[in-house]
């Protein structure tokens, strides 16, 4: 496959069929917690995107030098370093939001997706492609969370990004800003997407 085609494929795959969050339910841990506000989710997603893409890129860059014994430790170290950088930058430039994100920024490290992509892709592919793969995993992951956050904030507080959308006539669905709301939203999201995907593959099979 010519290089251009491969890059394109690399970009689109994690976003769709292999979208890390809904197909494999990886990495929802950290970010579901901040999906009660759209603003926080977007910032968090940027942090994850930054980490996924750059760690994929870096790991791929030195992949031929990494001794297999210490493979996981090196990957963890690289990922953790980028997460710390994200944490420091957030603290310096958006301290209010940083406070609201709490421990969840640090928990990006244990986000299964990042380690998963490192093992599955970055270790065996050149840096350019790994960067693209990282970016697209990050984006695929982000859009699911942003959708969930949009509904949680809207239904739970009548606002989106702090701007009131529903007026006084709306009674807040408090459950949406609480944990059960997040779980239900994600389940519904998966249900809808799976339903669409399954219908597609049934059509294709005909």
């Amino acid at each position: 496959m010519p290089a251009r085609g491969k890059a394109k494929k690399t970009f689109f795959e994690p976003m769709g069929k292999n979208n890390p969050v809904f197909a494999q339910i990886l990495g929802i841990c950290s970010t579901l917690a901040v999906t009660n506000k759209l603003e926080n989710t977007v910032i968090m997603s940027m942090g994850v995107l930054f980490t996924t893409s750059l760690s994929g890129f870096t790991i791929s860059l030195i992949r031929k030098l990494i001794p297999s014994r210490v493979r996981m430790m090196v990957e963890t170290l690289i990922i953790a370093s980028f997460v710390i950088i994200v944490d420091i930058i957030l603290r310096a430039y958006v301290p209010d939001i940083w406070k609201q994100l709490g421990p969840y920024v640090g928990l990006i490290i244990t986000n299964c997706i990042i380690m998963g992509r490192a093992e599955a892709f970055a270790l065996n592919n050149p840096p350019g492609l790994s960067l693209i793969d990282g970016i697209s995993s990050g984006l695929g992951y982000s859009y699911v969370l942003i959708v969930i956050a949009f509904f949680r904030e809207l239904l739970g507080t009548g606002e989106v990004w702090g701007i009131t959308v529903f007026g006084d006539w709306w009674t807040n669905w408090s459950i949406m800003i609480m944990p059960p709301g997040a779980f239900f939203m994600l389940a519904i999201f998966i249900w809808i997407v799976k339903g669409v995907l399954m219908r597609e593959s049934e059509e294709a099979a005909k």
Partner: peptide
Amino acid sequence: PVFFMVVVTVVFISVVSGIYLSTKERVLLN
């Protein structure tokens, strides 16, 4: 492996520390 780990650790921690120090003042100001 040991040598590699040490080098990688030093490199990354230096980069992180560098960024930390350069934003330290800003954090205090905030």
